[in-house]
């Protein structure tokens, strides 16, 4: 709980990052920024996938379609929030000269995407066969 509050304070009081440690090489900050943008693109793609499931698979049963769309959209939202969080934490670690934070989020996200993909394949194959 305390860590959540601290993280939120870090998000909304950016000058606090600048007070800590030393400014890292600007190239590292730019690399961190590009990683952040790559995650935002992933997030946008997931959100776009959510829209696409709803629009381009109208033959699916309502429940399946909404569940798939919701799973993709939820993954998109989590991905965007986590992108900001990871970017702030990396920036802080670089200023402090610590190791970069590790995360199990990529694994969880790829597992979630794999599950959605398998469900889609099953639904499309058996839905259209039956």
């Amino acid at each position: 709980m305390i860590t959540i509050v601290q993280t939120l304070r870090l998000w909304f009081a950016p000058q606090r990052i600048g007070e800590e440690g030393e400014t890292p090489d600007y190239r590292f900050s730019l690399a961190n920024e590009r990683t952040f943008l790559a995650w935002i693109r992933t997030s946008l793609a997931l959100v776009g996938g959510g829209f696409a499931v709803d629009q381009f698979l109208p033959d699916l049963r309502w429940g399946v379609r909404v569940a798939l769309a919701l799973a993709l959209l939820a993954a998109g939202v989590l991905c965007a929030l986590r992108a900001v969080n990871h970017w702030v934490r990396c920036e802080r670690a670089m200023r402090r000269g610590e190791d970069l934070p590790v995360s199990r989020f990529p694994t969880l996200l790829s597992l979630a995407v794999a599950v959605v993909a398998v469900v889609m394949v099953v639904v499309v194959v058996f839905g259209w066969a039956g």
Partner: peptide, 8 residues
Amino acid sequence: TVALACFA
């Protein structure tokens, strides 16, 4: 991004 998702 979050706004677009909420909108969806």
